[in-house]
Simulated assay, not measured.
Amino acid sequence: MTRLRRFTGAQRWTHRTTAVLMGVCVLTAACLYVPQLAQLVGRRALVVTLHEWSGLALPAPVLVGLASRALRADLGLLNRFGRHDRDWLRAVLRRDPRPGSRPAGKFNAGQKLYASWLAGSTLVMLGTGLLMWFTHLTPLVWRTSATFVHDWLALTMGVVIAGHIGMALADPEARRGMRTGAVSREWAEREHSLWRP
């Protein structure tokens, strides 16, 4: 079976490190807001510290990863939405199962939307988190608004990340590509027909 290079080591490291930091943020947030988990874990001050520092470090893997030409190229691909992406979304919304009905380049439209939404949400979470952390720098109304946005966006992010994990669990070849960096030619032709490695 022919294998195609999909991700470099730097790209996989960036994804894994970001996933670990995001996982720490989500788990510590759950321990801070769900009373049963808070009682089970205890040590609230430690959980808060882990949450704050992992949130603050969240942009670091991507910033370090920008040294990789391959990661910069992929970010460029994720940032472009073409006609084939609109066709892909229409096919998904119509639940069209026909082969070739969902044309995609290296990333499909769903992956592009997810990446863009998550990047923007992470920046909003970072900003609102900083407003909540440095309480002496802002008026009470700003902190209250930041807390509201932070909490509701965190819940939404948890749901969307769970969907991302579910999609990954449903596609073993995509997971293999993220784990090893290579995917089968058959999978690439079926799922990403416009991708030219």
Rank of each mutant, 00 (worst) to 15 (best):
122 T>A: 15
167 M>Y: 09
195 W>H: 03
151 D>L: 10
165 I>M: 04
59 P>F: 08
6 R>D: 00
126 L>E: 09
163 G>L: 14
152 W>Q: 10
50 L>E: 05
27 L>W: 04
178 M>R: 00
35 P>G: 11
87 D>G: 03
4 L>Q: 03
137 L>S: 08
44 R>C: 00
26 V>E: 04
182 A>S: 09
15 H>E: 15
133 W>H: 02
141 V>E: 14
35 P>E: 01
109 A>I: 14
46 L>I: 10
157 M>G: 11
121 S>K: 00
47 V>H: 04
83 R>G: 15
178 M>Y: 07
177 G>A: 03
72 R>W: 15
75 L>G: 11
12 R>H: 05
158 G>I: 05
106 K>H: 07
174 A>R: 07
90 R>Y: 01
27 L>S: 04
166 G>S: 07
195 W>G: 00
112 K>G: 02
189 E>T: 03
166 G>K: 13
85 D>V: 11
134 F>L: 13
112 K>S: 04
80 R>S: 15
139 P>D: 03
102 R>V: 00
36 Q>C: 08
20 V>S: 02
119 A>S: 12
136 H>I: 03
18 T>W: 11
135 T>K: 12
99 P>M: 13
84 H>I: 09
133 W>E: 00
92 V>L: 12
61 P>Y: 13
178 M>E: 15
4 L>I: 14
9 G>R: 07
19 A>N: 05
99 P>T: 08
54 S>K: 12
91 A>N: 07
49 T>C: 07
36 Q>A: 15
85 D>Y: 13
184 S>I: 04
127 G>P: 14
190 R>T: 11
117 W>D: 10
13 W>F: 11
191 E>C: 14
71 L>M: 09
5 R>M: 07
34 V>H: 04
165 I>G: 05
154 A>S: 12
47 V>W: 05
39 Q>R: 05
15 H>F: 15
35 P>F: 13
197 P>G: 02
124 V>H: 01
134 F>S: 01
5 R>L: 11
39 Q>I: 13
110 G>Y: 01
142 W>N: 05
41 V>S: 03
133 W>F: 05
16 R>L: 15
160 V>Y: 08
124 V>F: 13
33 Y>L: 05
16 R>T: 12
127 G>E: 14
147 T>M: 14
68 S>C: 09
94 R>W: 15
113 L>K: 04
24 V>N: 01
192 H>Y: 03
98 R>H: 02
116 S>A: 15
105 G>I: 10
25 C>L: 07
111 Q>F: 11
157 M>S: 03
147 T>P: 00
114 Y>H: 02
73 A>N: 04
16 R>A: 15
69 R>S: 11
66 L>E: 05
27 L>R: 00
52 E>H: 02
121 S>G: 12
60 A>E: 00
170 A>Y: 00
47 V>E: 00
63 L>K: 09
48 V>H: 01
71 L>R: 06
107 F>C: 10
108 N>A: 02
7 F>Q: 02
82 G>A: 10
129 G>M: 06
164 H>C: 15
188 A>K: 00
23 G>S: 06
24 V>C: 01
130 L>M: 07
67 A>E: 00
